[in-house]
Amino acid sequence: MDGRRGRVRPALAALPAVLLLVTGCTSPPAAPQPSPEPVPTTRPGTVARAEVGDRLTVTATVDRVISDTAFVVRDVDLTDGILLVLTTGPSAPAPPQLVTVRGTVIRFSHRDLDDRYRLGSPGPYRVFEGGRALVAYELTVRE
């Protein structure tokens, strides 16, 4: 009887370690972590902080079309909520289309840019004069 008791005691002592190993290997996998929140293309004030000549990508809604080569986009993430976009493409998208514009930041001057972009009357551009605008080199209309 003592012989059997001598074999059982070490086995009982090892039992907690065996249980720990078994339960550790069979526990359910950790729940998948949610993906991080999508980050807007631009953060508030990005256009204002951008230097003239910087490349910038903006996704926003077309607010209004001023001419075939100039339109205004609106988004809460933009400085003042709006941004003038100039393009040499065939025509501007129509409101309220969602667009992604990749372009270069410029300082807007109607007098300096009128000939190149066929801007027309300076009236609609007064609010943008001296501010930042985006010259598009790629324009994608989202459907």
Rank of each mutant, 00 (worst) to 15 (best):
P90T: 13
T87R: 10
P16C: 09
V8A: 12
P90W: 05
L20R: 07
A14K: 14
A30I: 03
L134I: 08
T46Y: 00
E138N: 13
R49Y: 09
R5K: 12
P124S: 05
T41V: 04
G89L: 15
P90V: 11
A70G: 10
L139T: 08
R55G: 06
R43P: 00
L83Y: 02
R116G: 00
E129N: 10
R49W: 01
A50M: 05
Q97V: 06
H110G: 08
L20T: 05
G123H: 05
G123R: 04
L83R: 00
G120S: 11
S67T: 15
R74H: 15
L12C: 12
S121P: 01
L113E: 05
G24I: 07
R7C: 03
R118G: 02
P90E: 14
Y125P: 06
E129C: 07
P38I: 09
R49E: 14
P28K: 11
C25E: 05
P40V: 01
T140S: 10
G3E: 14
S35N: 06
L84Y: 04
V58A: 05
L86H: 06
T88P: 00
D63Y: 14
S67A: 15
A133K: 02
P32W: 06
H110A: 10
T100D: 02
T59E: 04
P28G: 09
D2L: 13
P90M: 05
P122E: 06
V47Y: 00
V135S: 08
D114I: 00
T23E: 03
P124W: 03
T79D: 09
P38G: 13
R55K: 14
V73W: 10
R126Q: 13
L98Y: 02
P96H: 14
T59G: 01
A30V: 11
R43G: 12
V73P: 07
R102S: 15
V85M: 10
S121T: 08
D80I: 01
T61H: 01
L21A: 15
T57C: 07
P122L: 13
V101S: 09
D54Q: 13
R64T: 14
S67W: 03
G3D: 14
T59S: 12
R5D: 13
P93M: 12
Y117I: 04
T100S: 14
